[in-house]
Nucleic acid binder design. Structure first.
Ligand SMILES: [Mn+2]
Ligand SMILES: [Mn+2]
Ligand SMILES: [Zn+2]
Ligand SMILES: [Zn+2]
Lengths: 132, 132
DNA sequence: AGTGTAGTTTATAATGGTTCTAAATAAGTG
DNA sequence: CACTTATTTAGAACCATTATAAACTACACT
């Protein structure tokens, strides 16, 4: 999907800054994990110009709300996002403080046997912590 | 196990403040989830006196390090802890913003088929998000 | 018991990721 | 081009958490 469509569907006008964010986020072979600060640095390195943090936060949050980015539940002082929005799970390397994707085929089916009245399951996410 | 032993094993002297924290954390039929601020309020309500936040943080972190409390990976602006330190998983009710324990028997066995060289699995935690 | 030392509590400050603000700028529309 | 509305931005505000350092306490040893 073209960047501009992702932006438009997310209710955002395709500005110069947002398109640069898109190029770093979506113009890659592989998906990746990032914090807001890492993303801001990456844009500065790859594009050679600086986008204000407020714009990065706004754009990432809009993409998250519209399903083009995923927030990863993790105990860290920074929030981690994922450009891989398919259902998948994660290794978390405690020493390196790095996330690694687990393909869905890497994890057997997960059966949740308990039901909560009036609630339905929105997502099931597994976090596998790794140590040496 | 007596509070004082938990404290001593954690390398902490059994002071008046720490014993009050223990009474609120461990002197209950059921286990529970909490944030530091909720814990501090609970102590003030149940014990009628105030313990400084620094002491609550220090004590909780010492108990976490020694396996008497568990930190729950969750995307929140506050850190959640659990007095249930057995292997178990969680529902997270997105609307109520509340954690619910899933007993181990509520979740089928989870097989992780991928290995990372030189790393071993420390924990496997499932987070099931609930919506209405 | 009294003393000395190391551990502890506490109020308060510092830190740092995130969110808010409001003024300057840019996009879209006719 | 003129106008309206959305966007960007630097900086301030927010707030959970961590650090600080002075007053206080546990406890081991006389
Ligand atoms: Mn978090
Ligand atoms: Mn946190
Ligand atoms: Zn991922
Ligand atoms: Zn729990």
């Amino acid at each position: 999907m073209k960047y501009i469509d992702k932006l438009r569907i997310s209710g955002l006008r395709p500005t110069k800054q947002r398109i640069q964010i898109c190029e770093v986020l979506f113009n890659t072979e592989k998906t990746f994990h990032f914090t807001i600060n890492e993303l801001e640095q990456k844009i500065r390195n790859k594009k050679g110009n600086k986008i204000s943090l407020a714009t990065v936060y706004n754009t990432v949050h809009a993409f998250e709300k519209n399903g083009y980015l995923k927030r990863i539940p993790l105990n860290s002082n920074q929030t981690y996002f994922d450009t891989n929005v398919t259902n998948h799970h994660h290794f978390y390397d405690l020493k390196e403080e790095k996330l690694i994707d687990l393909e869905n085929s890497d994890v057997g089916p997960i059966s949740i046997k308990r039901k909560i009245n009036g609630k339905k399951i929105k997502s099931v996410e597994v976090l596998v912590k790794l140590e040496d």
